[in-house]
Nucleic acid binder design. Structure first.
Lengths: 108, 108
DNA sequence: TAAATATGAAACTAATTGGTTGCAAATGTA
DNA sequence: TACATTTGCAACCAATTAGTTTCATATTTA
């Protein structure tokens, strides 16, 4: 089961968990209190998030604290880079459809 | 079937399609040539991307050109904003687990 | 030591996913 | 008009997903 950061954030519950533990580490029980689902369901989400290294955990007594690995979140931003180049320059104002058709015409 | 931008980019094929048409609009046939899968599979991906408004299309004769709606991509960036605040400030250097435990101690 | 608490894992299920093949509709071309 | 091209849609299928319930293990507490 290959885990992927984009697949991990596809689920709304997982995005909510990520946002929840972003500022401070939390235990599975504490996280589950914020949702309607069972603790076990949260636990499965935490497992998936751990597998793709978006979160890590640390045991303290019988509690296990989960925290966000903020550096991993940067990978999403890195993927967006290629599109930022498009929307940050004024390139977006050109009609790429017209470009495509014109190019095709020129090839004839 | 609720379509969501995060669910849309979860699939690697769809991310590839997005990157492919980012600079210039393309027809389903042209897009499919870049992949191993069938034209119909590409068509289904285009449908999903259209449903969440990440792409739009325009018919020219019997061809249909699909283009990226770059503004919609910004929504991913907007979601990332909350985490950028964390990684851009040096807040990340604080150990949030220690914070949490200390806070808990203080509450006793 | 016994009971309570915190957690993960396994087994099961209904719904969704991503792919396929086959077909119909619309448009362009000979 | 007849035929080729471009496309979307429906039906089907195997794999995956997100949830549940049940159970086992480890740690703290009475």
């Amino acid at each position: 089961m290959r885990r992927d950061i984009f697949q991990a954030i596809a689920d709304p519950s997982r995005r909510a968990i990520i946002a929840l533990i972003a500022m401070q580490a939390m235990t599975p029980n504490a996280i589950a209190e914020h949702f309607d689902t069972s603790r076990q369901a949260v636990s499965k989400h935490l497992k998936i998030l751990t597998e793709c290294e978006l979160i890590t955990n640390q045991q303290v007594g019988r509690e296990i604290y989960y925290r966000l690995e903020i550096d991993k979140m940067k990978e999403i931003d890195q993927w967006l880079e290629q599109f930022k180049k498009i929307w940050e320059t004024k390139f977006e104002q050109l009609d790429n459809l017209l470009q495509t058709i014109q190019k095709k015409e020129n090839e004839k």
